[in-house]
Design a protein around this nucleic acid. Structure first.
Length: 442
RNA sequence: GACCCCAUCGUCUAGUCUGGCCUAGGACAAGAGCUUUUCAAGCUCUCGACAGGGGUUCAAAUCCCCUUGGGGUCACCA
């Protein structure tokens, strides 16, 4: 059943980034909640590029923002550029001028005339969807510039004209805009526009409190992508900042989130960006990721880093190695560091591995093990393990006193997959080579 | 400084609207252990919070007030 109200008032939300920088965590969360609300309510998600500042706005940032939004999966229904709407802003400013609600002013150091809105003293009430009633006193607000001397509109004015003419029903934006809201409400009323609903989202803070900085997570979304985060994981993490699906759920599919989401349920409290939790969520997704998709992400990386040659590599081998690491990866790029010994000829042995595992002279044991390996008829993980354990028993040693040093000599690391898998996938020759190299080094 | 917003484990949160089921639940991190082989995967366990003070009430994490603390905004930037 459909109700008349649903037919006549479709929900329209917007995300309005300014192309003066990359899309960051904060902006993408605002975009997410807008997009999510549109999906949840069967409404429209509008993208508006706020490029009125000709000096600071850059096409490359527009491209970066659009790419990031697409990568995150936030597809928009309509897109507008404020730089193409200057005539419209002028027209509405002129209207306020004609009605005596604004005046012009020329500053000595400026070329043209600015158009300025007269703020009349009054109480301004805002009923925020998340925060409830907020009251402001207009006395604390100065007269507002609408059109600057250079003919470009100010943020608050362009924003109101656009939100009204684009029929935006719900303005969902960061808490930093709360104090812009009374100014904007005054403009809506002066222009005779219907005031939309407002929902002010809490801000995302850095790990140590305070603003997000480069160190604390203000990394561009495109960088998270490069580092090797999955978009689904990043979106899932963002979802958990200031909102919760309830029932102790952490990992949640976006389609399920759409069913559960409502702006009204968003928290009022600011959340700190926590890279550890993002990594954990990314790992959860990486573990479940189909191998095919993982391959398509990792193989190009391997080629790029000269681990393998573009048209000349054993795909099945690469896939086997990927499987070995899949459950442990926090990011795709971890694979590069963790699995390098399977692809590179010369491996560097970490200092930690030398100190902890290779400080004792084990050349006798290493030589014996090379010999045993050479005699193996079958070369599979099980046979390697059996033979190794027999040898260790004969030598009267504990398994771990030999397992870890050998792995360290083969991989250069103190941690990694199981020894027998490592030996199997490295192959007899390379195992022999690396163990001998270590023996001779001593 | 003025105005505005916010306040549950170190962090993200459930519970707050509609007081009792909360000696406050989950997750990340941390610590301990298990996995006849590491851990950065898995399993088990531990640590750990209602900012403080007043009210209201038979009863308050939940409602009200104050204090404190954190954050935001005060541009011819967006």
């Amino acid at each position: 059943m459909t109700y008349a109200s649903e037919v006549t008032s479709m929900i329209r939300v917007r995300f309005a980034p300014s192309p003066t920088g990359n899309l960051h965590i904060g902006g993408s969360r605002t975009a997410l909640f807008n997009w999510l609300y549109a999906q949840a309510k069967n409404g429209k998600f509008i993208l508006r590029i706020e490029d009125t500042d000709k000096l600071r706005s850059k096409q490359e940032f527009v491209n970066e923002i659009l790419d990031s939004l697409k990568w995150l999966g936030f597809n928009w229904d309509e897109i507008y550029y404020q730089s193409q709407r200057f005539a419209l802003y002028k027209q509405f400013a002129q209207k306020l001028l004609d009605e005596g609600k604004a005046y012009t002013e020329k500053l000595p150091d400026k070329e043209g005339e600015a158009i300025i809105f007269k703020v009349t003293p009054q109480k301004i009430k805002l009923n925020d969807l998340i925060r409830g009633n907020i009251e402001f006193e207009a006395e604390t607000i100065k007269n507002q510039v609408l059109i600057k001397s250079d003919g470009t509109p100010t943020y608050n004015f362009a924003c109101v004209v656009d939100d009204a003419t684009m029929n935006i029903t719900h303005i969902i934006r960061g808490e930093d805009h709360i104090s812009n809201t009374p100014k904007q409400i005054l403009l809506y009323e002066a222009l005779g526009f219907k005031v939309p609903e407002f929902a002010h989202l809490p801000l995302i803070m850095g790990t140590e409190g305070g603003r997000l900085s480069k160190r604390t997570g203000a990394t561009a979304i495109s960088d998270f992508r490069k580092i090797g985060y999955l978009s689904e994981a990043l979106v899932n993490y963002l979802l958990l900042l200031s909102w919760s699906p309830g029932e102790n759920r952490e990992v949640i599919d976006i389609n399920e989130a759409i069913k559960l989401f409502d702006v009204k349920d968003v928290n009022k409290t600011a959340a700190a960006f926590d890279l550890d939790k993002l990594n954990w969520i990314n790992n959860q997704y990486l573990k479940k990721e189909p191998l095919e998709k993982l391959n398509s992400l990792i193989i190009p990386l391997l080629i790029e880093n000269n681990y393998i040659q573009k048209d000349n590599f054993d795909k099945n081998y690469v896939i086997s190695i990927i499987k070995l690491f899949q459950a442990r990866l926090s990011t795709i790029n971890d694979f590069l560091d963790w699995a390098n010994f399977f692809f590179l000829k010369d491996i560097e042995i970490e200092e930690k591995a030398k100190e902890k595992l290779l400080s004792r002279d084990l050349s006798k044991e290493f030589k014996l093990f090379i010999e045993r390996l050479g005699m193996l008829e079958k070369f599979d993980i099980e046979t390697i393990e059996t033979s190794f354990r027999e040898m260790v028993k004969e030598l009267g040693l504990e398994t771990k006193t030999l397992i870890h040093p050998i792995r360290a000599a083969l991989t250069g690391k103190t941690i990694g997959p199981g020894l027998f898998e490592v030996i199997y996938y490295l192959g007899k020759e390379r195992v022999k080579e690396r163990l001998e190299k270590w023996i001779n080094k001593e």
